[in-house]
């Protein structure tokens, strides 16, 4: 992936972004787990909250992700709102 990516936990609530390849240090079993939740590279998620935990809307389901996980999930540049 050539474009720069940022950590999901830095995205402001209300913004949407496309998931990029996660940080290589994210364990494969965890990646598979997240894939089962629908969090795969290329998919768009919307951040609903960052505290007390990162909460994203993925399709129509809200997922709460602890900081250690959210930090390793990376997203491309935020999409324009709306």
């Amino acid at each position: 992936m050539t474009r720069t990516s940022t950590a999901l936990d830095l995205l402001a609530p209300g913004t949407s972004a496309r998931l990029a390849e996660p940080d290589p240090s994210l364990e494969p079993t965890f990646r598979e787990h997240l894939a089962a939740y629908g969090l795969v590279p290329g998919h768009v998620v919307t951040v609903l909250a960052q505290r007390p935990m990162t909460v994203v809307l993925c399709d129509h389901v809200e997922l709460a992700l602890e900081a250690v996980v959210a930090r390793k999930l990376r997203v491309e540049a935020p999409l324009p709102q709306g």
Binding site: E62, L63, E66
Partner: peptide, 9 residues
Amino acid sequence: IPLVAEMPP
């Protein structure tokens, strides 16, 4: 294990 949880509506 860190928490990854679905929030049912």
